[in-house]
Amino acid sequence: MTAQAPNERIPSQWEEITAADSTHSTRYVERFRSMRADGKDIVGEARLIDAMLGRGGRVLDAGCGPGRLGGYLHDVGHVVVGVDVDPVLIAAAEEDHPGPTWLVGDLSELDLPARGVEANFDVIVSAGNVMAFLAPPTRHAVLSGFARHLAPSGRVVIGFGAGRGYEFPEFLADAAASGLEADLLLSTWDLRPFKDNSEFLVAVFSRA
C-alpha cells in the first residue's frame, strides 16, 4: 500500500467498491427502481423526516444515492438538496426525481455555500448506511460538516447498521467531538427504542 500524500483526497469505501466493479452503481440504481415498480416501501426513512418538519422545510439528503428519500421529501413539500459522491447515482436521481437540487460531492469536503447553496438546513438526513461507507479518517470531517450546515434549531438524523466497521459508541463519540449532541437514539426508522444489543442505530442530533 502506498503512503497517502499530505493533502491527497481519501476515497470512500463506496468509491473503492465502484472502482473495482464498474457495474456496481448501475445495479444499485436498478435494484431500487425494481423495488419501487413492485410497490415495495422504499421511503420509510423519509416519512420519519417528514414528520419532523413543517411544510417547506429545508432538507439535506447526505449520501442521497439515486434520490429515493430526497425525491419523496420534495414531493411532499420540502426544499431538498441531495449530495452524493457517485455521479451515476446523481444522474439517476436527476432522471427519476426531478425537482430537488442534486449535486456530486464528497461529504468530507462539504461546503455548499461555495456552490451557491444556502447552508441552514432544518434536517440533515444520512440513511442507507452512508456512515459505514466513509473512509474512517474522514468521519470527523463529515460530521463536522453536518454541524456547520445545520440551522440553529435544526437536527441531524443518521442511520446505519452494526457490524460495518464503525462501532456505535465510536460514532457517538465522533459526533459529540464534531459539535453534535444526541437527542434521541432509536433502533429502527419506525421509532423503536435503541438498546445495548440493537443491530441498527438511528441517531437524532442537534447542535451542541
Score class of each variant (00 low, 15 high):
R68V: 13
L69R: 03
D111N: 14
S198E: 07
G44S: 08
D196R: 12
A91F: 02
T188G: 06
D96Q: 06
R139H: 15
S22M: 12
G165E: 00
L184K: 15
G145Y: 08
N197W: 02
R58W: 10
A62H: 12
D174T: 15
H140Y: 14
A127G: 12
A135I: 06
V29E: 00
N7V: 12
S12Y: 14
T101A: 05
E181I: 01
I42T: 04
R36E: 11
V88P: 01
G145Q: 11
A119R: 14
T101G: 00
T188R: 11
G179D: 01
Y166A: 14
E167T: 07
A20L: 03
M1T: 04
Y72M: 06
G145F: 06
L112K: 00
G159Y: 12
E95N: 15
C64H: 11
H24R: 15
A19N: 05
E118P: 09
P11A: 13
D86Q: 07
V88Q: 08
V83Y: 03
G39D: 10
V81G: 01
D21Q: 05
A3M: 10
E118Q: 09
P113F: 01
L48F: 15
T188E: 10
P136K: 13
A93S: 08
I124E: 04
V130G: 11
S126I: 10
L184N: 11
L186E: 11
V59P: 14
T188W: 05
G105H: 01
P66C: 13
A127V: 06
E118N: 09
I17P: 02
V204G: 13
D84P: 07
R55Q: 08
L60C: 12
D38G: 15
R9M: 15
H140A: 14
R31G: 01
E199W: 02
I90C: 03
F168E: 00
